[in-house]
Amino acid sequence: MVLNQFLLLAAALFCIGVYGVLARRNGVMVLMSVELILNAVNINLVAFAAFTNSIAGEVFALFVIAIAAAEVGVGLAIVLLIYRNRKSIDLTEVDLLKG
């Protein structure tokens, strides 16, 4: 019953994140939306860990936080590279490759 509340919160965050990735045109906003999805996952993992009384979910959440940091590091570097070349991070203008 109460687990559902956590799952619903996580699902809502997930949906906001997916919407952000698909609808936002700013590269940094897309990155932030991906972070939202990852945090939705963390809420899920910690909630499940608390309710099944196993530690694995909490450990997994720590790994996810670390990985997310690494991913954002690389992602921001690439966005910065695009910005230096183009003076813009509008994803609709990044269209040298068709498709």
Binding site: A47, T52, A56
Partner: peptide, 27 residues
């Protein structure tokens, strides 16, 4: 660099999906 950005955004997006799936299977 453009290919890198595209691959990164879609790759991170898909990893997040995979992760959400793993969390549900764990639950």
């Amino acid at each position: 660099t453009e290919a890198g950005l595209k691959y990164f955004l879609l790759g991170a997006f898909s990893s997040a999906f995979l992760l959400y799936g793993i969390a549900l299977v764990y639950g």
